[in-house]
Simulated scan of single mutants.
Amino acid sequence: MRKMRVLVLSNGGPGIGGGHISRCVALATAFDAEGLQCRWMVNESALAMLPREALVETLPEAVLFASDAVGLVRKQRPDLIVVDSYVPELSFLRELRAVAPLCVIDDCRDRPVDEVASVLLNYNLGAEELGYGTSPERSLLGLRYALLRSVFADVARQSGEYVFLSAGSADVRSVTSTFLEWWRPTFPPLVAVLGPFVPPGERERARQHARFLSHARLLVAPEEYPRLLAGAGFVLCTSSVSAYEALALEKPLAVFQVASNQCRIGGLIEQRGLGKNLGEWGTFTGEDVARVLSRKWKKPDPSVNLNGAVEVARTVRAWLEDRH
């Protein structure tokens, strides 16, 4: 009996970031552990974040989420199709669902994806309050289903003296450079991480600022990212995948937003007492950061399931087996 096949369609890159890919990698790893065979269809830039052993077909952005790709999807004979992207139209998702059951990973219900999904997954804070309908056969909503890479469940937690800064895989707003400009000699030590999609020019700009800070380290896509995050005393990050990683490790944090889809999450993090919300990028200053850092750092209450990807994979596998 052949293994059930999962086909993951997603995208990432300099203008997109890496959140979609990161959480799909977590889910694919969990599917593999459950005995499901995973294959990917992505744009070429996304390859930088995929495991080397992944079975991948790359397509141009213009083709990846267009009807031209449906024939390629059909040739893979998938038992489940996972889509994680803001790009595809509902018409394209309907075409995919005609090929195989469709799992849509969503964030903010800016379009009625619940009307076309066989399985709807939204692990964000407040997902249960977005008014999803009853069309999906399974709806997996809330932090119980957080798609975090398995390494975060195993990494040793410490509470160091340094602040960990992550502005996303692409840092599309040059956040890291500005934070380095703001960083004062009286601030705690800083570990600032640039993601794999940050352009060379922006990397160099950040390096120039870091040169003058004896208590700051600037790292580019470090393999030890989970360990560095787990060892931090405080975290500054976007209210996206990075925030959920920090919350899963129960790190005191302050979040900010570089894209509109992150705003609601940032507000809920503060409303629920899980961290401080600095607000949208451009609406706060170095003085605001100084005030946050001067406060006593409070460890947030446990909220995010470190093994959420495993729970999703097991739930979806059982659902697929029942269908078969």
Rank of each mutant, 00 (worst) to 15 (best):
residue 211 R to F: 05
residue 134 T to D: 14
residue 18 G to N: 01
residue 107 D to K: 03
residue 183 W to R: 03
residue 19 G to S: 11
residue 154 D to K: 14
residue 67 S to Y: 07
residue 112 P to E: 14
residue 302 P to F: 02
residue 267 G to T: 08
residue 46 A to D: 06
residue 132 Y to H: 11
residue 119 V to R: 00
residue 99 V to G: 02
residue 317 R to N: 13
residue 287 E to D: 15
residue 84 D to K: 06
residue 171 D to H: 07
residue 31 F to K: 09
residue 128 E to S: 15
residue 160 G to R: 03
residue 108 C to F: 10
residue 202 E to W: 13
residue 266 G to L: 03
residue 237 C to G: 04
residue 12 G to N: 11
residue 144 R to D: 15
residue 275 G to E: 00
residue 205 R to P: 00
residue 134 T to C: 02
residue 27 L to H: 13
residue 85 S to F: 01
residue 263 C to A: 15
residue 278 L to E: 12
residue 259 A to K: 07
residue 110 D to S: 10
residue 186 T to D: 14
residue 264 R to Y: 11
residue 310 V to C: 06
residue 276 K to F: 09
residue 303 S to M: 09
residue 88 P to H: 02
residue 213 L to V: 07
residue 15 G to D: 15
residue 180 L to R: 01
residue 68 D to T: 13
residue 254 A to D: 07
residue 44 E to W: 03
residue 31 F to D: 10
residue 318 A to T: 13
residue 281 W to M: 09
residue 55 L to G: 05
residue 49 M to R: 03
residue 245 E to G: 05
residue 174 S to C: 11
residue 125 L to P: 11
residue 55 L to F: 02
residue 81 I to S: 03
residue 103 C to F: 12
residue 300 P to T: 10
residue 238 T to D: 03
residue 70 V to Q: 04
residue 101 P to A: 13
residue 232 A to K: 00
residue 44 E to C: 06
residue 114 D to R: 05
residue 19 G to L: 08
residue 223 E to K: 09
residue 299 K to F: 00
residue 93 L to P: 00
residue 224 E to S: 15
residue 306 L to N: 00
residue 275 G to T: 01
residue 189 P to N: 12
residue 200 P to I: 04
residue 149 R to M: 03
residue 291 R to I: 01
residue 304 V to H: 01
residue 223 E to D: 13
residue 299 K to A: 11
residue 65 F to C: 06
residue 146 A to F: 05
residue 191 V to T: 11
residue 225 Y to P: 09
residue 18 G to K: 02
residue 287 E to W: 08
residue 56 V to T: 08
residue 190 L to P: 01
residue 28 A to R: 12
residue 9 L to E: 01
residue 129 E to T: 15
residue 301 D to G: 12
residue 63 V to C: 06
residue 126 G to Q: 09
residue 263 C to G: 06
residue 14 P to F: 05
residue 125 L to A: 09
residue 100 A to G: 04
residue 52 R to K: 14
residue 320 L to K: 02
residue 67 S to P: 07
residue 205 R to H: 03
residue 46 A to S: 15
residue 283 T to K: 11
residue 251 K to V: 07
residue 107 D to P: 01
residue 273 G to T: 08
residue 317 R to W: 06
residue 32 D to Q: 15
residue 209 H to L: 11
residue 18 G to Y: 04
residue 290 A to P: 01
residue 46 A to H: 04
residue 270 E to F: 02
residue 318 A to K: 13
residue 288 D to F: 04
